[in-house]
Design a protein around this nucleic acid. Sequence first.
RNA 1: GGUCCGUUCGUCUAGGGGUUAGGACAGUAGAUUUUCAUUCUACCAACAGGGGUUCGAUUCCCCUACGGACUACCA
Length: 515
Amino acid sequence: MSERPVRVRFAPSPTGPLHIGGVRTALYNYLLARKLGGTMILRIEDTDQNRFVPGAEDYIRQSLEWVGIELDESPWKGGPHAPYRQSERKPIYREYADQLIRDGYAYYAFDTPEELDAMRERLQAAKVPNPQYNSITRTQMRNSLTLPENETQALLDAGAPYVIRLKVPRKEEIRFQDLIRGWVVVHSSAVDDKVLMKSDGMPTYHLANIVDDHLMEISHVIRGEEWLPSAPLHVLLYRYLGWEKTMPQFAHLPLLLKPDGTGKLSKRDGDRLGFPVFALEWHGTDPETGEPTVSRGYREDGYLPEALVNFLAFLGWNPGTSQEIFSMPELIEAFSIDRVSKSPAKFDVAKAKWYNEHYLRAKPDAELAPYLLAALGEHGIECSAEKAAQVVGVMKERVSFPQDFWQEAKYFFEAPTEYDQAVIAKKWNAQVSAALGAYADALPADSEPSANAEVLKSIFNQTMEAQGLKPGQVLQALRVAVTGAGAGPDLFETLAILGTGEVAQRLRAARERLG
RNA sequence: GGUCCGUUCGUCUAGGGGUUAGGACAGUAGAUUUUCAUUCUACCAACAGGGGUUCGAUUCCCCUACGGACUACCA
């Protein structure tokens, strides 16, 4: 049944920043497309003009770019089925809505919002199990099914506001096969007469989505589980439009849940729980106060895109092996829709952090250096790319995020202004101080190219022996005197990067301050 | 409320009629490391409950409970 080319689409609406769950949906679409040699399409679903948010579309584009999801057809790149923005396809939908009316599958409805509210209240009061505009209630409403034909025509001619609704059958079983869930069966009585065309002349999601997926020859619809309840409606639409044979295959992805408690992961959870729910930082406005707001992004928080992708891929999918680390090409190779799980996944950032640490350590020093260089630049400190790479090289095993480099390694660029008191109290005394003075004197000049960690260590050992001390008695004091901190990467590596001149100077300064 | 979907360690999950129910993250302990971190090793820890079917159910079926989604002229 699916001998035709694989074409998948990610279809966000530009109503705000792209949620991390949306990124995962896009990722799964992309993985399937690449795995099967198909086409990845992005379509902007902007049929609701009231919810348009400036900048959102660009944000979506940048988010996908950042995580490495490439689009074969999109509003920005174009393609054989352009335009890829629904607002630019407006006339197309009208045509199909008219077709549905002609064929008796849809009808005009003239009910005002007040009348609809009244209807719902009436139904509620009558304890109707599911109040909705359907095969029963439509007989009591103002629509082209209840109104005489000439009256309908008169209303239309007079320009009365109306919507077009789908005429859902009273008793019919609607079934379809979901790639992830198997057969899903819903009775038509549970589906209401959904609005297809709004009174502003724009289609609703339901109509636009089906028309576009058909016209764009989409083979697989991979989307979040929140769409599962409306899938039967979509099946009906394909049928009534005469497109059932080429209906795409559906795959409804399990939801991403809040890490604590329950419920779908939402935009607010990020601030509440202290982790980003967006790929990129978003600058918006509070809808209530109009105040500018900033929402954190994974990128700005220091996550590497490959770590985010790997983490996201594993939320709802696994390869069935014990391999945890996957690059994008490896994910593409291993991905298959039937290994996507049915049950929702709680979003746990701890795992994302672990992935980040992994990818950070795996990255070459030269690629990590720019992060440090940028922080140094902000603080007005000059540093060569070589030295930055060295520092990053010894630090990357002990940090989780690139921004930690500056935070944890300041002392490579600034002499300490205070010393870890716990270590001082325990390890610092007159004899140790004198020994460190001797070490400072024994250090070769800065220009000495042979002053590597190895050499510095042997000089240290010799000096201590001459002082009648064991290295272990002095090492911690040496570290604190030079870096101010009680912990850090290999001491002599640290000293080597610092340079002997700087080390000697810091040692003398420490002796002056600590006695 | 109604419809639909789901339920294996704290979390992500593997497995699938007979297993010591496996891995990863987190946690704990130990080894290495002059320190901290890394790394390595070990430990902790799960089949929601009740009925069936079966020689045997975590696995298949039903019910219950719990969780979630949806229930707009939003997507």
